[in-house]
Simulated assay, not measured.
Amino acid sequence: MREIVLDTETTGFDPQSGDRIVEIGAVELWNHVATGRTYHQYINPERGMPQEAFEVHGLGDDFLRDKPVFAKIADDFLAFVGDAKLVIHNAAFDMKFLNAELGWVNRPKLPWDQAIDTLDIARRKFPGSPASLDALCRRFGIDNASRTLHGALLDSEILAEVYLELIGGKQPDFGLTAGQGSGPSVAAEADWRPYRRPDPLPPRITDKEKAAHAAFLETLGENALWNRS
């Protein structure tokens, strides 16, 4: 199952009043596991950035001036999203802006039922408790110290962790269900493999631990099982 955790940054609150998207960030999940594929794009809103928006996002007119307009990135964005479920915090806000932008450039709009609203999930799961992204990070012990300014890709990465906690911290099934069902979609899932990690994980065993292990093996002598012919 493919899901896209998505966030947008905008110049304001209402596209019908002239506000536009200035940044889109998205993270791909497969069966609730991050694949390493992301989508990130800054966008020229073709209007001035209000001071209050600049203070929140840190994106000024000079920075955005040479970025592509939405019409130039719409097809790439739709290709990345495809028909995957869109995991969004306060989905009504982002979907409203995305569909306004898509409509202005004569592209198909995203169905509302394609979105999964983590804000709604959090409010139902923890009624009466704060449900902002920062509040949920505190609840689940997720480090968001680098979130000094709102950024779409960083917020998507953080939201992916929050989403997995909200749905119970589901772990991958290691392909044990791959043989169930039939048809092209099942076959595609069975053939899927996680993407190669861009940077190898650092070793967790220390030189001191390696030396202690070697010393222990020496105490077992020549009659150790692995020394027998």
Rank of each mutant, 00 (worst) to 15 (best):
E3R: 14
L119T: 08
L159N: 08
F70H: 03
E157W: 03
W112H: 13
A214T: 12
W112F: 09
W104T: 12
P130F: 08
L159P: 04
E46F: 12
L78N: 07
T118D: 13
F54G: 03
P203Q: 05
I205Y: 03
Q171C: 08
R65H: 12
R139T: 04
L220N: 01
A212I: 11
R138C: 04
R107F: 02
Q114G: 02
P127G: 12
D113K: 07
E101D: 04
I73L: 04
N144A: 14
R37C: 07
V81A: 14
G82E: 05
G128N: 08
E28Y: 01
E28M: 01
P202K: 10
V105P: 00
G181T: 15
I24Q: 03
A224S: 09
T38L: 08
D83K: 13
A215H: 12
H150S: 03
R196A: 14
L119K: 10
E209L: 03
G103S: 07
L59C: 10
F54Y: 13
A224V: 01
F97I: 12
V186W: 06
T8A: 01
A79W: 04
E28D: 01
D117G: 07
D207I: 00
H89C: 04
T8N: 02
E28N: 02
R138K: 14
D134K: 14
A71E: 09
Y195R: 13
L78M: 07
A71S: 13
F70N: 05
G169N: 15
T35W: 09
L159K: 11
L176F: 09
K125M: 07
A79D: 14
P108W: 02
P127T: 10
L154D: 09
T11S: 05
A135E: 04
P45K: 10
G82I: 10
Q16N: 11
L6C: 00
H32M: 14
Y42I: 00
S146T: 10
A34W: 04
D113Y: 05
L119I: 06
E101R: 05
D134A: 12
A53Y: 02
A115V: 08
R2S: 03
V87Q: 08
V22W: 00
S146A: 11
D173A: 09
L110Y: 02
I142N: 15
D83E: 15
E3I: 02
S185L: 15
V105M: 08
I167N: 11
A160M: 11
W112E: 08
